[in-house]
Design a protein around this nucleic acid. Structure first.
Length: 424
RNA sequence: GGAAAGUUGGCAGAGUGGUAAUGCAACGGACUCGAAAUCCGUCGAACCGUUGUUAAAACGGUGCAGGGGUUCAAAUCCCCUACUUUCCUCCA
């Protein structure tokens, strides 16, 4: 959530920036009018409340001295009704403002390219060269089905489309990949490992910005206020919701493996086969709580931490900076990392690393006491490190051999119990 | 699933309808070579608004888990919800 005072004081600049993210000018104008009206009403109602408080003191004194206060009490009854009426008006305006404020996206950072959609994202760099095959590379779902390590049909039977079984060495490979990722983040990159709840309440979904605007993207449990997490970012970031941290503790690094549940409403027909777009997938997530002065440095480090996994797996990838029109709701700046998928002859997203600055911290009330003793919002960051299923897909495709077998990347061999190749 | 007791600053903790105590911690000072201890003082419930500023500050309002109600007036009384602890039941 944005700071209303900042919106009020720098209205034109903020309006311009938010419009690059698809916010309508009219919405913002309406917000300013409501704010104006609200403050006018507050002056009125607060003056009346001051009167009431003063009268209450007098009544209290009279009663204490056993004197008659019936006249004063009667007069206050009238005032009470007026206050109630004005309070109602303020509350209505508050509701309207909250409706708008909770649905406004974060302000893009200065360094974010302005653009309408994904076509205007800017490539930062490419690492590794896509391998040239002496044969026609197969898509990973064909490889997986032929090796009998992925079973999409039974996933569809038992649950529905966009679900699957990993089988035998397929399951082993998935487990090897996420254990490798966790070990790397914990032992090489300094993150604390967590296992989180996989269901969270509405307030947590609000804290990280999924609610109220994106309810249709998630699976909510009927007759409860629990939601299956769409990413471990939600339980990890909300870990410190409504808490005050020590400045000396910052930065705090968390990592967690979790399943992620997404309804994928609106993506019908896209990536219907394979591991790219599922309703349930494993992801190793990184979350940071950073001092505002250092959060953008922390974003660079976190993105490198994600790239380090791909470097070690020797998979070709590129990094792009998302433009204003393609960024997620809570982010001030986002890098996407895209891995090379040979069968599609293209790069596909495998990680997204964002600095949300104080946007989530203001929603979730995560603060620290600074050296002057004042409360200040922390900056929160999150990034995939990495999407596990998509990593398995990339390994199957990039490491496939002409005979249909798949070579295990070197760093994973210890995690595979010494197995170097998956064959039929 | 059932029963009881709880939820008040960073922490501890008083407050049964009439101005949210107090202690610890923090900060400043004295003492000290320095520190600890001690003493003196300050701040602190955390946000909204008005006036105002380089920074400040002053005044007012709200704020006692969250929401609603009663009342001239609610931390306090009533209702609903959440969570915590203990006991019973069940269970991996």
């Amino acid at each position: 959530m944005l700071d209303m005072k900042m919106v009020r004081n720098h209205f034109d600049g903020i309006k311009e920036k938010l419009m690059t993210r698809g916010v309508e000018a009219q919405t913002l104008n309406e917000l300013m009018e409501l704010d104006e009206k609200r403050r006018q009403l507050l002056v009125q109602v607060e003056a009346k409340k001051q009167l009431r408080n003063e009268a209450s003191k007098e009544i209290s004194l009279l009663k204490r001295n056993k004197e008659d206060a019936t006249d004063k009490i009667a007069a206050m009854k009238q005032l009470g009704d007026e206050i109630k009426e004005l309070d109602n008006q303020v509350n209505q305006i508050d509701d309207s403002m909250t409706y708008i404020m909770t649905r406004l996206p974060n302000l893009p950072d200065e360094t974010v390219p302005v653009g309408a959609d994904e076509d205007e994202n800017v490539e930062v760099h490419r690492v590794g060269t896509p391998k040239t095959f002496t044969f026609e590379p197969k898509p990973h779902w064909e490889i997986g089905e032929e090796l009998d390590i992925l079973d999409f049909e039974r996933g569809a039977k038992v649950t529905g489309s966009r679900f699957l079984y990993y089988k035998g060495l397929g399951a082993r490979l998935e487990r090897a990949v996420y254990n490798f990722m966790l070990d790397t983040h914990v032992y090489d990159h300094g993150y604390q490992e967590m296992i989180t709840p996989y269901m969270v309440n509405n307030q947590s979904m609000f804290g990280t910005g999924q609610f109220p605007k994106f309810k249709e993207d998630v699976f909510q449990l009927a007759d409860s206020d629990y939601t299956l997490i769409p990413t471990a970012e939600v339980p990890l970031t909300n870990f410190y919701r409504d808490e005050i941290l020590d400045e000396q503790e910052l930065p705090i690094y968390f990592t967690a493996l979790s399943p992620s549940f997404r309804s994928e409403a609106g993506s019908a027909g896209r990536d219907t086969r394979g591991l790219i777009r599922l309703h349930q997938f494993n992801k190793v997530e990184m979350v940071k709580f950073a001092h505002p002065d250092h959060s953008f440095d922390e974003l660079e480090k976190m993105t490198q931490n994600a790239e380090d996994i791909l470097d070690k797996l020797n998979l070709p990838y590129r990094r792009i900076t998302l433009c204003t029109g393609d960024m997620g709701f809570s982010a001030a700046k986002t890098y996407d990392i895209e891995v090379w998928i040979p069968a599609q002859d293209t790069y596909r997203e495998i990680s997204s690393c964002s600095n949300c600055v104080d946007f989530q911290a203001r929603r979730a009330k995560i603060r620290f006491r600074n050296q002057e003793g004042k409360l200040q919002y922390v900056h929160t960051l999150n990034g995939s490190g990495l999407a596990v299923g998509r990593t398995v897909a990339a390994i199957l495709e990039n490491y496939q051999n002409e005979d249909g077998s798949v070579t295990i990347p070197k760093v994973l061999v210890p995690y595979m119990g010494g197995i170097t190749k998956i064959t039929k």
